[in-house]
Amino acid sequence: MFVFLCFLPLLIFSLAFLALPLVRLVSASVGGEQGWLIYAEIVSNPRYMQSLLDTVLVSLAVTIAAVLIATTAALFLTHNRFPGRSVLIASLTFPLAFPGVVIGFLIILLGGRQGLVNTISSNIFDTRIVFAYSMIGLFFGYLYFSIPRVLLTVMATAEKLDPALVEAARSLGAAPLQVLRDVTLPGLAPALIASGAIAFATAMGAFGTAFTLATNIDVLPMVIYTEFTLSANIAMASALSVLLGLVTWALLMFARSLTGTSIAASG
């Protein structure tokens, strides 16, 4: 009885503000003239499919880059103790709670028309380098918020790996790269899959960064936003949202079934 009371607030809240709205979202997506055929229209519409493809590609690129960079840094920071190490860790984790809009702004300061890179390249090499307002800018923006997440996950796992495993491989004659390939990376695999899946799902659903960089970057969340606010195409916006939600949810479930750990996207 008491335990039922414990669940009561949760049940009321989730029913009212999660279950019912999601049902409404699905029903709104098929509430237009086409009904369920709207999902067929998404698949047959080149603009939506191109946008889905672009979103997947940029998310994939970000995931690979973030995992490579953050794993290298995480292993370096786990295996070496030196003065200033905690400063490095702090500098690699502070953007963890930055929203996408702020990261978009930071990328503009870096690669925008008045950005640092352009200022340097114009003054020294007399060439303009502006990358902020495109897919490249988006890539760097997503990389910016993925690195801290992947780094923290990988470091937490790397610190738990039994150091004797590495020593054992070395005692058997393994060279550093062989140790990395045969012992360290297999040990990190669950963390790599989990953090990679989070980076990917977060990039797929992110909105703020693209919103700040430019309105003409056609990633899926931006398309949904445009359909909803500008075209007032509620059914299409809802259908694309359902599709996007299903993709990210399924991906995270799949990653979790591989790793056995619970993981979450955020941002």
Binding site: R24, G205, F207, A237, V242, T248
Partner: peptide
């Protein structure tokens, strides 16, 4: 199942959740 369900907002993009809330309320 309850835990899974209330954790959905972690894996569904905020944009989709916002659209759902907007249309109902």
């Amino acid at each position: 199942i309850v835990e899974e369900f209330v954790s959905l907002p972690l894996s569904i993009p905020g944009l989709a959740l916002a659209l759902a809330l907007l249309q109902l309320y």
